[in-house]
Simulated scan of single mutants.
Amino acid sequence: MDQITPRLTQAAVWTPDGIDIRTLDIPELAPGDVLVRIDLATVCGSDLHTVSGRRPAACPSVLGHEAVGKVAAIGDGNRPAVVGDGGSLVVGDRVVWSVTVPCQQCPRCASGFTAKCIGVRKVGHESARGDWVLSGSYAEHIVLPRGTAIARVPDAMPDSVAAPAACATATVMAALEAAGALTGKRVLIFGAGMLGVTAAAASAECKAATVRVIDQDPLRQRLSRAFGAVDDDGDSTDVAIDFTGAAAAVQSAFGRLDIGGRLVLAGSVTPGPPISVDPERVVRRWLTITGIHNYEPRHLAQAIAFLGATGEQYPWAELVDTPVPLADLTRVLAPTPPGILRSSVSPHTCS
């Protein structure tokens, strides 16, 4: 390994009784494994759903999958490649990493769907009783197994801007890829959370003719205007993207599609009531319905590039609240304050 690895670390373990701050052993790194010292972790909505019981998950576990940190050690053997720039990882690199860790050998991986790998493992989703205890970012350190997509972060990019790239921003990059070319298109986005406002800005940067956003929260609706969106006018659209997962929103989005329209579903990640799809309408109007879940390594690289290119144009950092110490994680595993789309945790900050 490149340097002496710390032996112990603090981690917030989610248990049936709540969050328990524990001192855990840092395991010996296998070839290609990477140990990262977490600088900042943001709180994704899926973790809020997990602790509230709306989303099934391994328990006990170390949650958290949106974070930025510095490489502290690398297991012996070949250095992992960095997505985006093609270089090799070195100790001290400032990085973000993918949510999914694929096997790279199954038919799904071979066909380009590594995010849906048959044996996929996921950052912040693994059991603390298994062989990957330090799998989440609500900890001082995380172990990234060989095969995790890792991207370097520019020094000038604030932690609060970089951390959401690992989930929200990269997912948006995948959604926009599924939406196709947006130049001159009318785009309608359902949901003005972190993904929705990011998609608004990304659509505007893709030269969409209009970017409209719908959210039931008036404050979030107004917030989206700072990211290139305008309020909905009720007209038809060329592209609709749903981040809410609400059946009523998906039904509405389908009904708004113009000739040749495309509907991208990204928020329907839990069971819900079905919607009505008229096959004749799909055929006669040349409509397309597609979905995305998680993302591919290229999308992580695109996320960092996008945030770097738009850092002075959009107030990304204002979307993330002031970080709390790891000991106060329970306080931010709750709905965010008005006007804030992400709470955050600074694991190495004392209470």
Rank of each mutant, 00 (worst) to 15 (best):
Q104L: 14
L333N: 00
I214G: 00
S346M: 13
T270D: 07
G184M: 07
D39G: 05
P273H: 09
E296R: 15
R22A: 08
R186C: 04
T310C: 10
T210S: 14
M1N: 09
V187S: 14
V43D: 02
S98E: 12
D20L: 11
A266I: 00
E140N: 07
Y295M: 09
Q221W: 12
T237K: 12
N78G: 07
C44G: 12
L134D: 01
F243C: 11
T9H: 03
T244V: 11
W97M: 02
G147C: 10
A174P: 02
K122R: 15
R222N: 12
S343K: 06
M194W: 07
P335R: 01
Q104T: 11
R220E: 09
Y138K: 01
P325H: 07
P271Q: 04
V13N: 00
C44Y: 02
T237S: 15
G255A: 08
V250F: 09
V264K: 05
V230I: 13
S61C: 09
D233L: 04
T50V: 15
T114Q: 15
P218W: 14
T100P: 01
L24N: 03
T270H: 05
K70V: 04
P325F: 10
H348N: 07
A175I: 04
L307Q: 04
T171A: 12
F227E: 09
A253P: 03
A247F: 10
D238S: 10
E28R: 10
V282Q: 13
A12M: 14
G69I: 08
P325N: 05
S160P: 00
P6S: 03
G53A: 01
G291I: 03
I150K: 06
A248K: 14
V68Q: 07
D76Y: 00
V123P: 04
V172Q: 07
A246S: 08
D258W: 03
A305G: 13
D76E: 12
V34C: 02
A149D: 06
T171N: 15
P338A: 08
A57H: 03
R222E: 15
A303V: 11
A58W: 02
D258Y: 02
R55L: 10
L307N: 07
